[in-house]
Amino acid sequence: MNTNQKTIICFCEDITKEEILKAIEQGYTTANEIKRHLRAGMGECQGRGCMPQIMKLISQKTGKPREEILPPTDRAPIKPVPLGVMGKISKGNQKGV
């Protein structure tokens, strides 16, 4: 196959469908594991586009029902925020989630 014929799943980190299928075959069968193994979903869009597709691929490939494939952990900031802005919060009383 021509190299530019790739099917991209994670656009931020340039992860292909083939790579994701291979990872699932190797036993990475949760969204969090795929994320850590391939870095898919860890880029600038914070996994918005690729994660639903990755969960679908895991389900298709493993035969597990969709409800068993949990979404990865969602962390703040929900949108990328400049370091200098994050450094301006009033200190102390947050518990966090």
């Binding site: 703040a76 900031p77 949108k79 925020v81 994050m86 009383n93 947050q94 518990k95 966090g96």
Partner: peptide, 17 residues
């Protein structure tokens, strides 16, 4: 833009950045 939900430590009150 929404940054995140950070409830207050003692009171558990909603706080959003």
């Amino acid at each position: 833009s929404a940054i995140g939900y950070y409830p207050e430590e003692e009171t558990g009150k909603h706080k959003f950045l």
